[in-house]
Simulated scan of single mutants.
Amino acid sequence: MGKHRPNAPQWVWYTFGGKLPAHLAEWVLHDVTCRTWVLRHLLRALTQLAPFCVVVLLLPGPLHIRLSSLALGLLVGLFYSISAMGESCEHRVIKHGYPPGIGRETRAMYREVRRATRNETRRRRPPE
Rank of each mutant, 00 (worst) to 15 (best):
M1R: 06
G2D: 13
K3P: 03
K3Y: 02
K3R: 08
P6T: 08
N7I: 01
N7Y: 03
A8K: 06
P9E: 08
P9K: 07
Q10G: 03
Q10S: 02
V12K: 02
T15P: 00
F16G: 00
G18W: 11
G18P: 08
G18Y: 07
K19Y: 01
P21V: 10
A22L: 05
H23A: 12
A25Y: 07
A25K: 09
A25N: 15
W27I: 08
W27Y: 08
L29R: 02
V32F: 09
V32M: 04
V32N: 10
T33H: 01
W37V: 01
V38G: 07
L39Y: 12
H41K: 09
H41C: 05
L42D: 14
R44P: 01
R44W: 06
A45E: 07
A45V: 13
A45Q: 01
L46K: 08
L46Y: 13
T47R: 11
T47H: 06
Q48F: 03
Q48P: 01
Q48T: 13
Q48A: 08
L49M: 05
A50M: 10
P51N: 07
F52G: 15
C53N: 06
V54W: 11
V54Y: 13
V55G: 00
V56R: 00
V56A: 03
L57I: 06
L57T: 05
L58T: 10
L58F: 14
L58C: 14
L58A: 14
P60M: 05
P62G: 14
L63N: 08
L63Q: 12
H64R: 15
I65P: 00
R66T: 10
L67W: 02
L67K: 02
S68F: 01
S68N: 01
S68C: 09
S69R: 03
L70N: 03
G73N: 05
G73L: 13
L74M: 12
L75Q: 09
L75N: 04
G77V: 10
G77D: 01
F79A: 15
F79H: 12
Y80S: 06
S81Y: 12
S83N: 09
A84W: 10
M85C: 15
M85I: 15
G86W: 12
E87W: 09
E87L: 07
S88C: 10
C89P: 00
E90F: 01
R92G: 00
R92K: 15
K95Q: 15
H96E: 03
H96G: 04
G97V: 00
Y98S: 05
Y98G: 03
Y98E: 04
P99G: 07
I102T: 14
G103Y: 04
G103R: 11
R104L: 10
E105P: 00
E105D: 10
R107P: 01
M109D: 12
Y110R: 11
R111S: 15
R111F: 00
R111W: 04
E112K: 12
V113E: 05
R114I: 02
A116Y: 02
T117G: 13
T117D: 14
N119H: 05
E120D: 12
T121K: 09
R122C: 02
R122A: 11
R123S: 14
E128I: 13
